[in-house]
Design a protein around this nucleic acid. Structure first.
Lengths: 251, 251
DNA sequence: GACGAGCGTTAACCCTTGTTATCCCACTGT
DNA sequence: ACAGTGGGATAACAAGGGTTAACGCTCGTC
């Protein structure tokens, strides 16, 4: 159940089989299914438990008074929606399902207990939330400095590396691909662009063979080219366990 | 020494005098002075200690390969630069002084010890980093959805509330003001706008009497008006200890 | 007292991106 | 077979904001 989370945490540090079992048990407690467009948590809710994405895609988003919406992050399998938030009186942003999503509802106490009894897990969960913070800063940088094509390219790079870390990418004949069940509308909300301009820019990216996007599958024919356009530097994802360098050509 | 940090944390919870003394002692250990334009920490550095801003203004920023710079957050007195980062191998963004800054260098162990021996402080520090995350998401929202005048207005609102929390605002004749030693250039890097457009937009804001900015002092003649333009909702700063509502008219 | 650095201000022009409005296709339910 | 809906693709036009290039003011320094 918690396979993806475990895979992700193991990017940071090796977990003992005991640690893994603890996570598995915690995630197995209660599973909820959320349909597309439904919220997993809504801004203003009081945090009661911690939500772990088991399957499907979701996003964090904020809505302005006049209805404008900004997606501030994508949530993929293995992502924990709201760890540590239980010390706040209310959540300051919403999380909504983009596809059918299976969520494990872990009672705060259970998670606290899991963490308290394993320093290694504590560190791994800290690492995880530091990475989320770093991703948020990188989004700010993208929205502030990168222009349309760079911004989209950067997002595809980010998602490729994150999905690779949980084993949700494929690598056939040097072409990397992954499931990407997001509409252009949602992509517009995430990149701060209009739908029309997202579409225009995607056409351009296809022309330049930066991505191939058919149905719900995105293929990256040349990751280094995409990274170069995006000025993507994977350091902020902190995936370099044991100082081992990230390499675009590695499977 | 740690006065501002203590004031900030007390927005979240009452601290015992013992807690406060612990923080004071930790902050008194070693103080470094950083000159304007110098870095407090540079991207790629290995975190060795935790830096607490005692005095002055700084910012977090990221630089793209081609030199474009995005400021991803402002650091004011009482802000902790890099708590929790010591579990990472390297820092993923730089922090630079905007004015002369006095920084307390707190050894990681000291801080861990302080936190470990006081659950209340632990929670307060957690709360603090959750607020920082929330601010980062709000910046993403601003850059993605708010247009120039809204974006600048929002930033002034954020800074007003943050500075109020540490006692660095004044409130004479209903007009709120604070020291704001930031150049239009830096404001441009923070809002993802060009310097020229920052200037244009500031002129507009002065015309509409949203702000008065003379020398290094910003005055807000009508906070509610500014908040309205910015579509500012202070919830994300989580300053509502004991469920007490935030009110623009309160001193 | 002259000079330059740093910062703010303005104008003219242009380009990236947003807006509005169609049209098309694939899917779904009846 | 039909309409309805959601998603994608395009075109024409408008506008917000970037770029470039001046100019001016206030310091601090020699």
């Amino acid at each position: 159940m918690a396979t993806y989370l475990i895979r992700k945490l193991e990017q940071f540090t090796q977990l003992s089989s005991e640690d893994k079992q603890k996570l598995e048990r915690a995630a197995a407690a209660k599973v909820r299914v959320v349909r597309p467009r439904e919220d997993i948590i809504r801004e203003g809710d009081k945090p009661r438990q911690v939500n772990l994405i088991l399957d499907g895609w979701a996003c964090r988003y904020k809505v302005l008074e006049d209805g404008r919406r900004q997606i501030v992050g994508f949530l993929v399998p293995g992502d924990v929606c709201d760890i540590r938030m239980f010390i706040l009186k209310q959540i300051d942003h919403s999380m909504g399902a983009l596809t059918p999503v299976r969520v494990a509802e872990i009672p705060s106490d259970t998670l606290l207990d899991v963490i308290d009894t394993s320093p290694r897990l504590t560190r791994a969960m800290w690492w995880n939330s530091l990475v989320e913070e770093a991703i948020s800063r990188e989004w700010t940088t993208s929205l502030g400095q990168r222009e349309a094509i760079e911004r989209l390219s950067h997002l595809f790079c980010e998602l490729y590396f994150r999905l690779k870390a949980v084993g949700l990418t494929e690598n056939g004949q040097g072409r990397k691909s992954f499931e990407f069940p997001v509409t252009q509308d949602q992509l517009a909300d995430a990149t701060g662009m209009s739908t029309v301009h997202v579409n225009r820019t995607l056409q351009l990216m296809r022309e330049q063979e930066l991505i191939i996007w058919k149905g719900k599958t995105v293929t990256i024919p040349d990751l280094e080219a995409l990274m170069s356009v995006a000025m993507f530097n994977a350091n902020y994802l902190h995936l370099d366990r044991d100082g081992h360098e990230l390499d675009a050509n590695e499977p």
